[in-house]
């Protein structure tokens, strides 16, 4: 028997998982190997120490504290929900105005194919907005996601506005000249 295996078996023995035959084999090794015998002694000592360890109890009743936290978190989530709902609504409103304005301008100036491409892009943006909204709802119901949620929403809003600005007011105005 090698020392490595003996050491593994010692741990199993402490959990009562060695067969009688295995234990005898281990014992035989322990009698011939002082290094392992020493380790076994120390493992037994650690085992005994832990067996005698106390269970500690909380210093006070935690029920009211947990309930208070739960209430505070629910309040914060409601606030976040309404705040972000309002922001998203405003964003959609602005997006709608820009969409119709931009679509009208593009339609009146460009070829049908270009107009189609712009509409396609606008449609994709819409899909993105819906996806962000879904993600946002999902995160709302997981705890501790507030900060992540706000960052993602801001990032998405920023990218969308940037995209609208570039595509509608830079790109096509440039081509019109």
């Amino acid at each position: 028997m090698r020392c490595q295996q003996a050491s593994e078996w010692m741990s199993l023995q402490l959990d009562g998982l060695l067969t009688q035959a295995q234990w005898e084999e281990l014992e035989e090794h322990l009698q011939s190997c002082p290094h392992c015998a020493k380790e076994w002694g120390m493992m037994l000592a650690a085992d005994q120490l832990l067996q005698g360890a106390e269970r500690v109890s909380p210093p006070r009743d935690l029920v009211p504290l947990v309930m208070a936290r739960m209430e505070a978190r629910a309040r914060r989530q409601r606030l976040l929900f309404w705040g972000l709902g309002f922001a998203l609504g405003a964003l959609l409103f602005v997006w709608g105005v820009v969409f119709w304005d931009g679509a009208w301008r593009v339609w009146s100036v460009l070829s049908a194919w270009d107009a189609f491409r712009v509409l396609d892009c606008l449609f994709r943006t819409g899909v993105l907005v819906v996806q962000v909204f879904v993600l946002w709802l999902r995160v709302l119901f997981e705890s501790g996601g507030g900060l992540v949620l706000i960052s993602w929403s801001c990032l998405a809003a920023f990218l969308m506005i940037l995209w609208l600005y570039i595509v509608l007011f830079r790109g096509y105005r440039g081509r019109r000249v």
Binding site: M42, M43, A45
Partner: peptide, 11 residues
């Protein structure tokens, strides 16, 4: 097993 080995050494 490793935890017990470590604890044995610490003791």
């Amino acid at each position: 097993h490793r935890a017990r080995k470590m604890m044995a050494k610490l003791l």
